[in-house]
């Protein structure tokens, strides 16, 4: 589903990504680990077509990111550090805007269904400005799922969430596994990654140093690699 071939993101001598290659098969659940500044967010942004690699090739769902970025955008759901939602609009208006941008035909029922799923149906007419961080993140998930994306790119989906929201996000992720969606997520929580992900990738200073099945990795081993 996702093929990354020798991608480099560089400016001058600084290499945010230095020849990263990997593949993720359909339905795989993969965790991307790495210290701060290892290049995780840069990689996620390139996969989400927000940024172009300096060199290398990215293919998602059979489309080259260079030639058909819009086809890729139509097939990925992205969660980033920032909200990506408009504070002045209500939850429903936000989703309606994005559903129009994605050209979703059954938008009204889809919006209702998603709001129900993330538990925001009662607050659908409230402005996003009034939402807590957890509610904000739940709505972000609804936004990312609007267009039925088969691939999900989640950059730190748990960052800054309270316990309730964390539980909800974890349930959503379990559902993705059950639905056999292709998921690539970055997390700090090693235990979560080891327990849930099929495969673990580790970035270190822009290089991919680990690409293994989760059951082949021991916790202390991974901890060591991450601290290196």
């Amino acid at each position: 589903m996702i093929h990354v071939q020798k991608i480099v993101k560089a400016f001058g001598r600084m290499r945010a990504l230095d020849g990263v290659s990997f593949s993720i098969a359909q339905g795989q659940y993969v965790a991307l680990l790495g210290a701060n500044g290892a290049g995780k967010t840069t990689l996620m942004h390139i996969l989400a077509t927000l940024s172009r690699p300096t060199a290398g090739h990215v293919e998602i769902a059979g489309y080259s990111s260079k030639k058909h970025p819009n086809s890729i955008r139509q097939r990925i759901g992205f969660i980033g550090h920032a909200g990506l939602l408009y504070d002045e609009l209500t939850a429903e208006e936000n989703l309606r805007f994005f559903s129009r941008m994605y050209g979703i035909s059954d938008s009204e029922s889809r919006i209702g269904q998603l709001l129900q799923e993330v538990g925001l149906l009662a607050r659908r007419h409230d402005k996003v400005r009034t939402f807590s961080r957890g509610m904000h993140q739940r709505l972000s998930f609804a936004r990312a799922l609007l267009h039925y994306p088969p691939i999900l790119l989640l950059d730190e989906p748990f960052a800054g969430l309270d316990l309730n929201a964390t539980v909800m996000v974890k349930n959503l992720l379990d559902k993705f596994i059950a639905e056999e969606k292709t998921v690539l997520l970055t997390v700090h929580d090693i235990d979560y990654a080891l327990y849930n992900a099929k495969r673990i990738l580790v970035l270190n200073r822009g290089k991919l140093i680990v690409n293994k099945a989760a059951n082949e990795l021991r916790r202390d081993q991974l901890q060591k690699v991450l601290e290196a």
Partner: peptide, 9 residues
């Protein structure tokens, strides 16, 4: 938030 717009096809 521009990212939200840029992610759209």
């Amino acid at each position: 938030r521009m990212h939200g717009l840029l992610l759209c096809p």
